[in-house]
Design a protein around this nucleic acid. Structure first.
Lengths: 225, 225
DNA sequence: ACTACCATACTTGTATGGTAGTATGGAACG
DNA sequence: CGTTCCATACTACCATACAAGTATGGTAGT
C-alpha cells in the first residue's frame, strides 16, 4: 500500500521486485513457473538477499507462493479470488463514479477526453498493450478526480489475479470497440452529472471487461488452480 | 493477501512478523516508535535476517516506514488513508450485507446471534479488548456467510490505519452499547431479509464506529502525520 | 562564544556460508 | 518387472560479516 512514493533510488531489492512483478503481471512469467533465489540472483547480478526480500513482498501480494525447502512458484490464478476481486472492484468503482457525477474537476474531465482520443488512435493501430494501459489510466483518472487515489491503489493491489485473467481474455479475443464505447459513455455521464447512468454503464463495463473464467479455464487449464 | 492458509509452521520470520504486526495494531508500539533490526533481533532471539524480512512485509502494508541508513519507524496515522479506508469499507460492507439479506446460511446467522450474546457479557464486564474482537468477528461472520472471505481479508489489509484510529477512539470514549444495538439490528435485518434497513444500519454503524479524526488529532497529535 | 570539522557509533543494504528439509534418479532387493 | 531405499542435488531458511550512508557529540580553530 506504499510503493508509490518510494525513494527514487533503485535499490537492488526494489529493482528486482519491480521487474519480477511486471513480468508476472504481463504473463511473461506464466502461472506455475518455478522461480529460485539462486537463479534469479544470477540473472539479476545481485546476491540472494535482495531477491529473497523481493520474494517476500511478492508472496504477500499473492503473486508467488513460497513452499519452504521446496521452491517458489508464480501463483496459479485462483478463480474464487478473481471473482471476489471483481466484486470489490465493481462496488468501489460504482461508488466512485457516483461521486464523480456530483463533483469532478474540469481538468480531470479533459484528461478523460484526451485519454479517449488516445484510445481511438491505439485501437486503429490495434495496439493491445497500449489499450490496456489506457484502460487502466482511464479508471485511475476517475479515482484521481474524486481524490480517491489510495482507493485505486488498494484496488490495484488486490487485482493482481484479476489483471492476469483480464489480460488472458484480451489477448484471446479483442473487444476494445465495445469497451471504448462504454468509456465514452462514462465520460459523458460524468459531464452530465447523470449518476444512475454512470453507475449502470460502469457495472456493465466491468462485467464485460472481466472474463467469465470458464472459457479461460478451458483454454489455459495449466494457469488455474 | 495470502496469510490465511500459511503453513502452520511458525518460522522465525512469521513469528516476528505476527508479533510486531499485533503490537503495532493494538498501539503497544505507538505511531512514530523507532524500531531497529538489531534491537528487534536481540529481543526475539533471532538474527537480523528474519527481522528484516518482517520489516519488508510491514513496510508493504504501510505499518512501518523504512528510511535507508536512518531507521525504521512505526508509521504515523495518515488521515487521508484513514478516510479512504472508511470509504472502501463502507462500500464493501453495504454491498455484502445486501447480499446477506438475499441468502445467508442458517448456521452463520446463529453464529451472529451467539456473538451478540457474548457481546452482552463482555459489555457487562466492560471488557474492551474482547468487545473489539467480537466486533471484528461479527463483521467477519457476515462476509463468511456470503462467501466473501477474501474480501474481508482485503479489508483487513487496507484497514491497518483505520483500525488504529478506531482503537484510539474506543479507548477514549466507550460507546459499545450503541454499537451493540446496531449489531443486533443488523442480525434482525438479515433474518428478515430487509436489505434496505440492513444497509442503512450498516452505514450508520460504520460512520459511528469510525472516529471523526479531528478530535483524535487534538488528543494524540504525535500519532498523526 | 561560535563555527566548522571529524571521529564514532549508530542505521539499513548486500553478500555469503552453513543448515535442514525435500524431490529425484539409480541401485539393490523381492 | 515392480518396489524400496538411499545418495545426491537441489530448495528456502537463517546467521553472520562487511559495506555504505547518516546522526551526533566533542574538539580545534576562529
Amino acid at each position: 500500500m506504499d510503493q508509490y512514493r518510494m525513494p527514487p533510488s533503485t535499490s537492488a531489492r526494489e529493482a528486482v521486485y519491480a521487474k519480477l512483478r511486471h513480468q508476472i503481471l504481463i504473463l511473461e512469467l506464466p502461472p506455475g513457473t518455478a522461480l529460485s533465489e539462486k537463479d534469479a540472483s544470477l540473472a539479476f547480478g545481485v546476491s540472494r538477499t535482495p531477491v529473497r526480500e523481493s520474494f517476500v513482498r511478492l508472496a504477500q501480494e499473492g503473486l508467488v507462493q513460497v513452499l519452504p525447502q521446496r521452491g517458489t512458484f508464480v501463483s496459479l490464478i485462483d478463480s474464487e479470488l478473481v471473482e471476489e476481486a471483481r466484486f470489490m472492484r465493481e462496488q468501489l468503482e460504482k461508488a466512485v463514479i457516483r461521486l464523480a457525477c456530483e463533483s469532478f474537476p474540469e481538468d480531470r474531465l479533459e484528461a478523460l477526453e484526451e485519454n479517449l482520443r488516445e484510445q481511438r488512435e491505439s485501437m486503429a493501430r490495434t495496439d493491445d498493450k497500449r489499450m490496456f494501459e489506457l484502460d487502466e489510466a482511464f479508471h485511475r483518472t476517475i479515482f484521481e478526480g474524486c481524490r480517491k487515489l489510495n482507493t485505486w491503489a488498494a484496488i490495484q493491489q488486490m487485482n493482481v489475479h484479476l489483471n492476469r485473467s483480464r489480460l488472458l481474455r484480451l489477448v484471446t479475443d479483442h473487444q476494445w470497440s465495445h469497451l471504448y464505447a462504454q468509456h465514452e459513455q462514462m465520460a459523458i455521464a460524468i459531464r452530465n452529472r447523470d449518476a444512475d447512468r454512470a453507475e449502470r454503464v460502469m457495472r456493465e463495463h466491468l462485467s464485460l471487461s472481466i472474463a467469465d473464467l470458464t472459457m479461460l479455464k478451458e483454454k489455459y487449464p495449466q494457469y488455474f488452480q
